[in-house]
Computed example of a mutant assay.
Amino acid sequence: MSTFEPYLIPLQSVTFEEEIKKSHFITYLAHTASIEAAKQFINEVKLAHPSANHHCWGFVAGRPTDSMLWGFSDDGEPSGTAGKPILAQLTGFGVGELTAVVVRYFGGIHLGTGGLVKAYGGGVQQALTLLTTQQKIIISELFLCCDYNQISLVESLLSEYSGTQLKADYAQQVSMHLALDSRIVAEFSTKLVNRSGGRIVATSTLEG
Rank of each mutant, 00 (worst) to 15 (best):
E5C: 01
E5P: 03
P6S: 01
Y7S: 02
I9T: 02
P10L: 06
P10T: 07
L11V: 06
S13R: 10
S13I: 10
V14W: 00
V14D: 00
T15K: 15
T15E: 12
T15M: 14
F16A: 05
E17K: 11
E18R: 10
E18S: 12
E18D: 14
E19W: 06
I20V: 10
I20Q: 15
S23N: 01
H24G: 15
H24F: 15
F25K: 07
F25C: 10
F25G: 09
F25L: 12
F25N: 06
I26F: 08
I26H: 06
T27H: 11
L29Q: 10
T32G: 13
S34H: 11
S34M: 12
I35A: 10
E36M: 15
E36N: 14
E36K: 15
A37T: 03
A37S: 10
A37L: 09
A38H: 11
A38S: 13
K39T: 10
K39E: 08
Q40I: 14
Q40H: 15
Q40V: 14
F41S: 04
F41H: 02
I42N: 08
N43T: 10
V45D: 02
V45L: 09
V45I: 08
K46E: 00
K46S: 02
K46Y: 01
K46Q: 05
L47C: 08
L47G: 08
H49D: 00
H49M: 02
P50N: 08
P50Q: 05
S51D: 15
A52R: 09
A52H: 10
A52N: 07
A52P: 07
N53V: 04
N53P: 02
N53E: 00
N53M: 00
H54E: 03
H54Y: 04
H54G: 08
H55P: 05
H55W: 07
C56Q: 03
C56H: 03
W57H: 07
W57I: 02
G58V: 00
G58P: 03
G58T: 00
F59L: 05
V60C: 12
V60W: 06
V60S: 09
A61S: 06
A61C: 04
A61R: 04
G62Y: 13
G62C: 13
G62T: 09
P64F: 07
P64A: 11
D66Q: 12
S67Q: 12
M68R: 15
M68L: 15
M68C: 15
L69Q: 11
W70G: 15
G71F: 13
G71H: 14
D74H: 06
D74V: 03
D74W: 01
D74L: 04
D75F: 07
D75V: 04
G76R: 05
E77D: 12
E77C: 14
P78R: 06
P78T: 10
P78M: 11
S79K: 13
S79P: 12
